[in-house]
Design a protein around this nucleic acid. Structure first.
Lengths: 282, 282
DNA sequence: GCGATCGATACCCAGGCGGTATCGCCGCGG
DNA sequence: CCGCGGCGATACCGCCTGGGTATCGATCGC
């Protein structure tokens, strides 16, 4: 199976429409139809149910969608990591670390400082991204290592080490009635008519319905809280990012958040190993 | 990057010889040279140092060798799993479980029996293999789930659940002087002139040097012990496989062996989940 | 029943991939 | 010192296949 065929199939499976998929791929529709048919013949499996009016995935098709995406990511990762390894000799960035914008900033600063002081440290590029994007960045080679936050992120398929665990606090406008209480419960916050809880993206990237604003990362969220549009429960370390007129109130019954450093399995880079060692020693 | 290019590069990187690689790939040498050059141009990286007398990998080349193998496995897995998903409708095997030949046979029998009794169990094919091959089988889609043995196997990049932990015993000819002792230490066994320890394959498939016989799996090993050629330290459950004239003696200072059930991350199959659940309940 | 939409088919063209022949370089042996 | 052999690179050629255009056939909405 060639990656071209996989790319074509993934496009059709995502669009469920040959015309749009062809447009996205920058080719005409007939060659796309042909390529998919040929792929089905070679696999001996029908991947799509064409109803002359609509296209639907078969069970085998959804397997190929999931596995094909993973395979395409692996191919992309191979290319990117090779390119970077070749340019590393010319003084390119040594490691790419990704974290959610606005999360673990103190920890990250300490980590970068401590690592830079190591004897043979390489340059570290920081790649800020939104919720749920980090795993993808690791898998397709755009990043080498990530700071994740359990239980929100998942580490399946990654190697990881735990760094710190913190309780969560509610971030509220200073003048809000709840801001005076010594602590809150999650239930207190979920139904505030004036401050609806924000909506985070689901694993597939879509947002659940609801009244609150959709946010991509904690930095965005803090902006919205400062504007008095929402309220949030965040790890204690978010206190350091607190803007004026905001207060943090402990929420003991919210799950504790563990920050972990994670990387793709089988990464055998000395620089990465040194960074992880530095992180666990903080 | 197309999988064809990756296959070509991996072949050359493994053979370090364009002619042999071309022969292995079933093509002539010139197109292979061209393809590699083109790949290097597109990546903007030299992958191989050609010395007109020998071929060597650059740093970037060894990155691409490792990542490319992983990517090719992922592509192969996508094809195989899709094919199997398509044929499952026609009553093909539902799950492929792999374990080392001769290991955990009692546990495996219990697991298969218990799972078969579940309400919506699917057929399970058992794929016996040698040491170190299981991870590959999971990654390239030839197997869905494996029984691994820590600390010998690695679960990096896999999801897993622990099943049982056992102490190890030495397997000796019944007449051997050491067979009468109540227990042994590993040091006692490593330097027996009449019974050299077996040699297991290293992660890359080669065998370390030494006097003992090279073995691929415990079943093979038990044969050799029965022939009086070697001695081995195996988990207690190997007692059930003991042939005539062999004795098992506890070795308390050998590391405990934990049998785990492992599967590729992101496998979202109901049948697999049911099998894992059954296993953890044993 | 008619038009619009969408996937499939027919046909054509060209780029690319693979094959053969050959070159250039280097190490080795006589 | 020269010739030979091995190996990767280059030159050139032919075919296969991937992509484009035109068109068909089926189906749904009006």
């Amino acid at each position: 199976m060639e990656t071209r065929e996989l790319r074509y199939f993934v496009a059709v499976a995502e669009e469920l429409h040959f015309g749009r998929a062809a447009q996205r791929l920058g080719i005409a529709q007939p060659p796309l139809s042909r390529a998919i048919r040929q792929l089905e013949r070679r696999l001996g499996v029908t991947l799509l149910e064409r109803d002359s009016r609509s296209v639907a995935l078969t069970a085998a098709g959804s397997v190929l969608l999931r596995e094909g995406r993973a395979a395409l990511d692996a191919v992309a990762a191979a290319g990117r990591r090779t390119r970077r390894a070749g340019q590393a000799a010319d003084g390119g960035a040594g490691l790419v670390l990704t974290t959610k914008a606005g999360a673990s900033s103190e920890l990250l600063a300490k980590l970068l400082d401590a690592y830079a002081a190591e004897p043979d440290a390489v340059p570290v590029e920081v790649l800020l991204c939104g919720i749920g994007e980090q795993e993808r960045l690791l898998r397709d080679g755009r990043a080498d290592v990530a700071l994740l936050h359990l239980p929100f992120d998942s580490t399946t398929g990654l190697d990881s080490e735990e760094l710190v665990t913190e309780q969560q606090v509610a971030i509220l406008p200073a003048g809000h009635p709840l801001a005076r209480l010594p602590h809150l419960r999650t239930a207190d916050l979920e139904t505030l008519p004036d401050l609806p809880m924000p909506r985070w993206p689901r694993p597939d990237g879509s947002y659940p319905p609801g009244p609150g604003p959709g946010v991509r990362d904690p930095a965005q969220l803090l902006q919205l809280i400062a504007l008095g549009r929402t309220v949030a429960v965040l790890p204690e370390s978010a206190r350091s990012l607190l803007l004026a007129d905001l207060t943090a109130v402990p929420v003991p019954d919210a799950p504790a958040v563990t920050t972990v450093i994670a990387w793709p399995p089988h990464s055998r880079s000395r620089a990465l190993a040194a960074l992880v060692r530095t992180a666990t020693r903080l």
